[in-house]
Design a binder for these strands. Structure first.
Lengths: 208, 208
DNA sequence: ACGATAATACCCCAATCAGGGGGGTATTTA
DNA sequence: TAAATACCCCCCTGATTGGGGTATTATCGT
């Protein structure tokens, strides 16, 4: 049984060629195409696609907004984003919104069918540059911008687990007042004035 | 000029074949091989490799520990991890430690040289399954496990930015006591008892 | 159209916790 | 030997937490 593909792409020529490309293979059937994704929810309920090809820039609603909307009611449909640029912000937004893969338009002719096959078998197709961006975003920020001492780092780690001063004192075996003075130093180095700020900054900047 | 490759792999047969595979191509020169990575820091300073192939499981020091050690003094060398399993924990640990790519041993013969080329041109080679794991880990946890109301979500978001009750009250235009009662509800739903715990949980579970 | 339920917005009291300001000593390292 | 690190203590104010409430709108199912 062929996989059901739904296409959203506002460029008429590209939309046509995507459709034709897929029609050449009997693995796939294009259940519908559209130049905007305003009716995406309705479309999905009616057409029950397995895979959606979604342009990022479209009039009315962007592809990223559409993915968010889809994920509210459906976690299983695979959505492959199509884009011209390997643009940092858009890529991350789309991935966080729940995209399954990321295809550059310039590579569409060779990569489209392999990419669809890849998502269907549990993969996440993306260009090498995007893969690198994703990996980089997960890596610890080289660590030493704030010049924490070993102890300060330990205590920040415990603070980030949500522990109170008392609990940290118990956990480390240090005196309560010692913890307090370490935390004062940590705040000074992080340039913050509360535990929540410190935790927020530490986690978001991957300091721990 | 050929790229300088350094190999750490405790299995003698595999280490030999990796070396031989690379020697077949004049793109690469294997500057050294070792069955453990205890002297990795010294090796790097002496041999100045461009790329390191690093087994994950080795006696003495694991490949992951070795990557961490490398990243303390060198951020540029590419490290490709070699592993038998697409094991969740190890993969993430290695990526967070600073690995540049992830190669499954069963695919080494076809994928090794393309993978090295890929890291050298700014990519991040990894198997489809690993790519999928990485992507999944970045995506928002579907949202509604804790059944926050719109307001509760707003306020949790502000709390996660490190704001105090007062600041949140100013920001939202609501009364201080209103913020307090929302935060009580948030704590109840999250099953926590302090702002730091809430922020920690919210950020780590990508609720905001 | 009806009550039930949920969401929103607000208030008080009491006890504990955290944050900013001081102060200090001992040990290790450069 | 000066600097850095690790450790400890006091005071005071203001913030946070946990326990009670009340009132007004929406929203939903029958």
């Amino acid at each position: 049984m062929p996989e059901r593909v739904l296409i959203y792409e506002d460029n008429d020529a590209l939309r046509k060629s995507l459709e034709e490309l897929l029609m050449l293979s009997d693995e796939f059937v294009v259940v519908s195409t559209a130049r905007d994704c305003l009716s995406v929810e309705e479309d999905i309920r009616q057409l029950n696609p397995d895979v959606i090809l979604m342009d990022i820039d479209m009039p009315g609603m962007t592809g990223i907004e559409a993915v968010k909307k889809i994920r509210v009611f459906n976690k299983k449909i695979f959505v492959i984003m199509l884009t011209v640029f390997e643009d940092n912000g858009h890529v991350f937004d789309a991935i966080c919104a729940g995209a399954s893969g990321y295809l550059l338009k310039k590579n569409v002719s060779e990569k489209l069918i392999p990419a669809i096959r890849e998502v269907l078998t549990g993969g996440a197709p993306m260009s090498p540059v995007i893969a690198k961006m994703v990996i980089s975003s997960m890596q610890k920020s080289s660590g030493k911008q704030y010049n924490f001492t070993v102890r300060e780092n330990d205590i920040l780690k415990l603070l980030c687990k949500g522990m109170s001063y008392k609990m940290i004192a118990n956990e480390t075996g240090l005196a309560f007042e010692t913890i307090r003075s370490y935390i004062k130093n940590i705040y000074e180095k992080l340039q913050v004035h509360s535990a929540t700020e410190a935790v927020s900054k530490a986690i978001n900047e991957k300091l721990v």
